[in-house]
């Protein structure tokens, strides 16, 4: 792994009530890079984001941020990190306390900075609001005053107020309408090129990830099944799960959509609602995989680099039909 990486996660595992939610995750993010996390609910996308922020406790592995091991950073360590490591949440309604003014919410990441006076804080808050396209006096208002899109701008302003280097965006546009969603996507892209930010981005909508992410990491049941440059993964997905996921993504082109519907039949296995076995070994996708063999159910696939520059965890990756 390159020593220039801003965030370096190795063999990270998180367990919840004895069940593994994340199981040996490796992931890096370079300065100025956007890494997209893709996978279905229960894949562990949010848990990964929360583990980086110290909101979920890792059971194994290491998280290194800017050369510093933050895996078990305490409250004090987190406080120091809070300026440089920030998060934008999914729900713009739940992420701002309706009982507090916007200015109070935005000043929170600055509260522990002794070097800032109250006036400094006010100045930084207003600067941050203007940067996301809101008037500085928005700080005096309450969240109820703003629409969903504006609130998400405010949430982004809160993340930016301490001049972070990495912002974790957990489904930042999922709750927004399409026309507003585009505004926020553009804002995130602009801020990145202006400020050299890195993003760890999760999104339900694959198109959003495709549009914003330089690299993409596909998660399935707590494991990375495939990772690599976004355009490579999109055009030549290697893992059967990645293929199924991309095939399921709605295409806003009726002709292509109908073709995809036909192609999908080939990718999906026909069993509906069959519960995944709680097996320790083997590939977690085997029970749904159209290409699974007997050994897939017992042998755990190891992430292996491919000539395309991606990393794939599939026992049969060389035997699968090309796409």
């Amino acid at each position: 792994m390159s020593s220039h990486d801003l965030l370096e996660i190795s063999s990270l595992s998180v367990a919840y009530q004895g069940r593994p939610v994340l199981d040996g995750i490796d992931l890096t993010i370079a300065p100025g890079e956007t890494v997209g996390l893709v996978g279905e609910s229960g894949a562990g996308k949010s848990t990964l984001a929360w583990a980086v922020l110290g909101l979920a406790r890792p059971s194994a592995g290491r998280i290194v941020f800017d050369g510093q091991d933050i895996t078990r950073a305490g409250r004090r360590g987190r406080r120091l990190l809070s300026s440089s490591l920030q998060m934008v949440f999914q729900d713009p309604y739940s992420s701002l306390n309706p009982a507090r003014r916007i200015g109070d919410a935005l000043a929170e990441p600055l509260l522990h900075r002794r070097d800032l006076s109250r006036a400094d804080r006010t100045r930084l808050v207003e600067e941050s609001l203007r940067r996301v396209g809101l008037p500085g006096d928005a700080a005096q208002r309450f969240p109820a005053h703003f629409s969903g899109g504006q609130r998400q701008r405010i949430a982004i302003a809160r993340a930016l107020v301490g001049s972070p280097r990495l912002v974790i965006c957990d489904e930042p546009v999922t709750a927004l309408d399409l026309s507003v969603q585009a505004q926020i996507i553009n804002l995130l892209a602009e801020l990145q090129s202006e400020l050299g930010l890195s993003y760890l981005l999760t999104a339900h909508d694959l198109a959003v990830v495709r549009h914003l992410a330089h690299r993409v990491v596909v998660l399935h049941r707590g494991r990375v099944v495939e990772s690599g440059p976004t355009d490579v993964v999109w055009t030549r997905p290697a893992h059967p799960y990645t293929r199924a996921l991309l095939a399921a993504a709605p295409v806003t082109d009726p002709v292509a959509a109908r073709a995809a519907a036909a192609a999908r039949e080939a990718v999906f296995s026909t069993t509906v609602g069959s519960a995944p076995p709680e097996s320790a070994g083997g590939c977690a996708y085997a029970h749904r995989c159209a290409f699974a063999e007997a050994r897939c159910r017992v042998e755990r696939p190891v992430p292996t680099p491919t000539p395309d520059g991606t990393v794939v965890a599939c026992l049969r990756q060389d035997e699968l039909p090309a796409r």
């Binding site: 409250r75 490591l85 998060m87 949440f89 739940s94 992420s95 701002l96 929170e108 990441p109 509260l111």
Partner: peptide, 22 residues
Amino acid sequence: AEQFIAAAKVAGLSDAQILWRH
């Protein structure tokens, strides 16, 4: 469960601060 509590934790607020402010 509200996200603003998580946001306050990310901002480095202590539990006492979160209880008091939020």
